[in-house]
Structure formats: structure tokens, C-alpha cells
Amino acid sequence: MDRALRRRLEARFGEELTGPVRQRHDETEIRIAPGDLPEVMLALHDEPDLRFRLLSDLAGVDTGTTMQTVYHLWSDSSADWLRVIADGLSRDDPRVPSVTFLWKGAEWMEREAYDMFGITFEGNRDLRRIYMPPDYTSFPLRKDFFLPDDASRSPGGGVRPMEQTHGPTNAETAAHVRQASSS
């Protein structure tokens, strides 16, 4: 755990952070609102005492109640991975600014998150499905998309067809959807 990085992040992004800076093992985690993402990422990328130049990973997460986009960054200024969580995207219409203005390589990763979760990355010039066919309407990694043998785990849910439409507009948080704990 890099305590110095934590102090730096708290001093620099005190207002943008929506939760405490968490540290565990070799990871430091900050949470921000999706609207602050371009500003925070630009600062992390460019400021000389941060220098997070390498985007290691970009992931979408469906927590059951909200959506998140999670970025893992690496810098030579710290021994930790930095995890930036853009938290609190609505499940009905998840929208988050794109980071392709900093990392062009994020384009496909954002396409993947769009394909799997229906998250719209505003500013991505080529946001279309990447794995699933173009006429596909579901978003497979959302938690209300069940595999056929999942029916046993949700009492009362019964057997659902696997590929029902879960567009962001008609998505609802059902009671039987598995939800991540809020910690």
C-alpha cells in the first residue's frame, strides 16, 4: 500500500472524490462521479507527480442497482495499481464520458463495455457492437441476463428465455437479481 499516493490523491481530488480512498494489497481505489471523469483522468495522466500514462484495463460493472466503469492505471510514480471507479451510472440509461481523448486504445475496450453492458461512452467515435452481431438487442453481462441453468438460483423467477431484450431503456432491477454488496 502506497500511503503517499493516498495523501496526494486526497489533496488533489478532495472535492471530486465521492468516497474514501481505499487501499488493499497493492491497489489504491478512488471513486468519482461519471461527470468528473475526463477532468480527473486528464489530471492523473498529465500531472508530473501522478503520471498515470498506462491504461491497463477498462471494465464495465453492473452492481445490480447501478452501473460502473472501472479503470486501472499504472504509473512509475507509485508502486500501486490505481483503480478509478466512475460510480452511480443509472441502469436505465448508463452514460459516461469517453477516455479515448487520452488513450485511443480505449476505443475497443469501450466498445466491449457497450456491447456487454449497454454503457454509452460519450465521445467514442465508433461505439458499435464488437462481439455480438449487429442485430442483437440484449446486453449479456448485465445481471438481469440469465444463463439457461440459472433458473434454479432465483426462486419465483422460473425459467426465463435466455435472450430476452434488456435494452437500457426497459431494464428493471428485479428483486431476484444478484446484487453486489455496497462495500
Binding site: 491497463s56 484495463d57 471494465a59 460493472v61 453492473d62 472501472v70 486504445g105 476505443e107 475497443w108 475496450m109 466491449e112 444478484r178 453486489a180
Partner: peptide, 15 residues
């Protein structure tokens, strides 16, 4: 609950 796998081939193919 969620397992995200990042693969370098995916990123490199973009190039």
C-alpha cells in the same frame, strides 16, 4: 460477482 479479463491481443489487434 464480476470477473473482468483483459487480454493483450485484443488491444494489440486495434493497432
Amino acid at each position: 460477482y464480476r470477473m473482468r479479463i483483459h487480454d493483450p491481443s485484443f488491444v494489440h489487434l486495434q493497432a
